[in-house]
């Protein structure tokens, strides 16, 4: 502080020098309380504040406000568009599902129709085959009956001949008509 007081005396007329060397000279130690600088600070503060205010209120703030509202608008718009696209996707899915169901039922219909047609053909073929089989069976039965009749005839002939030979072997002769009647009676019995 002793330093300071001497400098106050020395620096009274050389304010700038005193200010350069140490604040303690100018205003009781605190440059904040050096009232000689107040008009200067206040003037430049006013200038700065007015300029900042003009820059902000004329240019910066309206611009930022418009950007922010534009962004909000864009976001709202995009959300609406997204909602619409979602709606469209749902519709497309519904259409797809419908098309799929239609195709399925169509396929089922075609399958049923094909099945019915095949069944019909099959039935006809079966009937035809049955008829053929029945015809063949009848034919075969007829053939068998013929064969049996022939066989019976042959057996009768064999029996007659056998009887005739047996009788002749025994040394007697018999009437062919008698033999035939006896054989027929025997076969019947």
């Amino acid at each position: 502080m002793a330093d300071g007081t001497t400098e106050v005396a020395a620096g009274a007329e050389h304010v700038a020098e005193a200010v350069g060397h140490g604040a303690e000279a100018a205003g009781a130690g605190m440059p904040q309380l050096d009232f000689s600088t107040f008009p200067n600070q206040i003037f430049w503060l006013f200038v700065t504040l007015v300029l900042i205010y003009l820059v902000l209120s004329r240019i910066a703030l309206p611009r930022i406000a418009s950007v922010l509202s534009e962004r909000a608008g864009t976001i709202t718009h995009d959300l609406a568009a997204a909602e619409e696209f979602k709606q469209r996707a749902v519709e497309a899915e519904a259409a797809y599902d419908k098309a799929l169901a239609d195709a399925r039922s169509e396929a089922a219909r075609i399958v049923a129709a094909a099945k019915a047609e095949i069944q019909q053909g099959l039935d006809a073929e079966l009937a035809r085959a049955d008829a053929e089989i029945a015809a063949q069976t009848a034919e075969s039965e007829a053939a068998i009956a013929e064969i049996r009749k022939d066989a019976v005839k042959s057996v009768t002939q064999v029996a007659r001949n056998t009887v005739k030979v047996l009788i002749s072997t025994m040394g007697t002769e018999a009437e062919t008509a008698d033999i035939n009647a006896a054989v027929a009676a025997h076969l019947k019995g």
């Binding site: 050389h14 304010v15 700038a16 020098e17 200010v19 350069g20 140490g22 604040a23 303690e24 100018a26 130690g29 605190m30 440059p31 904040q32 050096d34 000689s36 600088t37 008009p39 200067n40 600070q41 206040i42 003037f43 430049w44 503060l45």
Partner: peptide, 25 residues
């Protein structure tokens, strides 16, 4: 506290008038 001293930017007569460009400016 020296850092708080208000100084004229361009020497001049060393007196700080209300319009003097200083480090405040």
């Amino acid at each position: 506290l020296d850092q708080f001293i208000v100084k004229p930017l361009f020497g001049g007569d060393g007196v700080i008038h209300w319009y003097t460009p200083t480090n405040v400016t």
